[in-house]
Amino acid sequence: MRAASLRARASASTCAARPAPCTSTSRRRSFRAPRAQAERSDEKQEGSSPTSVPEGENCDYGFTAGTTGLYTDRDGPSTPRNVVKLAVANFQKELRALREWQDSREELEQTQDSGFSEEPSAVDDLAGSLEDEELCINFQDELKKLTIDADAVYARELDRHKDGDYMKKKSWVIKVPYLVLCWLLDRVYSKERPIQRFWFLETVARMPYFSYISMLHLYETLGWWRRGAAVKKVHFAEEWNEFHHLLIMESLGGDDQWIDRFAGYHSAVLYYWVLNLLWLASPVLAYQFSELLETHAVDTYGQFVDENEDLLKTLPAPAIARQYYQNEDLYMFDEFQTSRAGKGRRRPEINTLYDTFSNIRDDELEHVKTMVACQNTHVAVRSPHQR
């Protein structure tokens, strides 16, 4: 029975290579795209050179967002239920996911032991028509071709360190955990799992700004410090930006596996409390640590974009990316880019995954500049909206 199930999955995976309705199990589902997009997919199969996705096309890569919902949804309340109901519901959901993950590992081991190979089925028993004007295409198998070379990322960091005394100026209090974190990431997330690695990074990357807001709020409440009140808005804009990076990774399946969600959520909570303690000891050190992590993110996304440029340019941008970067109200997008005060505003064009990840890389560079500015204890940090 399990072998039959795997053959069915292999057959379903061929939907990514032909314009036919996709059916699936697990968390995968199909999306609809214009017929012109389907024709481009066929041209690519026949050996033609990669073509860019036309401007204005949206994409749903077929990964569900779980049961927690998105703020972009028009239906449903924005106020959650009490903590007991939420915790129990989440525990039940993750327990089911854990069992499915264990079953899939057992199936894989049995399949490998039996010598069975997941080759695409020669019979297209899933072919059909959804509507006359629309066909189903699934790009999930294309996403599996994306890679990230950890050695190349490290080489980028070494090149940056040679330029001046970048690392020498950092305290060992933050350098040691930073180097350990990078070492773990390179070993936990293989070259073939870049999206999962990015999802983990973005889950953790939101925590510093939440921590800084919490500490500034605490200091205000105690009457210790209120000069940083305006910086809270900048940090919230940074957290809002990282949150959308996270939503983009989720739309690409970064949190599809139970093990990644378990690692990301627990690491984020631990990281938040460590940052709170570090802030109490020295806000400058807290900002320095974030500078290191954000700079690592710039190198990582930069390597990913360069390494996968051709493929990324053939894949459409997720709908959430277009909504965030090309929204009619970009106040929050501008707010965290403190280095651009008086220098004009960024207005990204988001048509492909290449555009998406290039802008995420540029966002991380803006975070680096803001973290550097926050370490200056003599000059106030100003957002582009402050005069």
Rank of each mutant, 00 (worst) to 15 (best):
Q288D: 10
D363L: 04
P283N: 08
L311Y: 08
A319T: 15
E309Y: 08
T352R: 11
A317N: 02
A281E: 06
E349F: 02
Y331Q: 09
S339Y: 06
V284Q: 12
I360Y: 03
H367S: 09
V372D: 07
L311M: 07
G342V: 15
E335Y: 09
E366A: 15
K369L: 13
R322H: 08
E294V: 06
Y325M: 08
N359C: 07
T314A: 14
E335A: 08
V368E: 02
M332I: 15
K343V: 06
R322D: 01
Y331F: 14
Q375R: 13
E291P: 06
G302A: 11
Y301T: 04
L293W: 00
R322T: 02
E309R: 13
D310R: 09
I320E: 13
Y324R: 10
A373V: 01
N351D: 15
R361M: 13
A297K: 05
V298N: 07
T338A: 10
Q326F: 07
S290Y: 09
Q326N: 06
Q326G: 03
M332G: 12
G344N: 11
Q375E: 14
Y324M: 01
D299L: 01
A317I: 03
V368P: 01
Y331D: 12
A317Y: 05
I360W: 02
L365T: 00
E364C: 08
A373C: 03
Y331T: 15
K369W: 04
N376L: 01
F336C: 10
R345L: 13
L280P: 00
Q337P: 01
E291W: 03
R361C: 13
Y325T: 05
L285E: 10
F336S: 07
Q303K: 11
D306R: 12
N308A: 10
T338G: 04
A321D: 05
L285N: 11
L330C: 09
A297I: 02
E328V: 02
E349C: 05
A297T: 11
C374Q: 13
D355N: 13
Q326S: 12
L365S: 09
N351K: 12
T352V: 08
H378Y: 12
L365P: 00
S282V: 06
G302S: 11
A319W: 08
T295D: 08
T370P: 00
R340M: 13
V305I: 10
I360K: 02
S290N: 14
F357R: 03
Y301Q: 03
K313P: 08
G302Q: 05
Q337K: 14
Y287T: 01
T352H: 01
G302P: 02
D362C: 02
N359E: 13
L292Y: 10
E309F: 07
A373F: 01
I350F: 11
R322S: 11
R345G: 02
Y324W: 15
R340A: 13
D355T: 03
K343R: 15
P348W: 01
P318K: 11
E328F: 03
E364D: 09
T295W: 00
A373I: 01
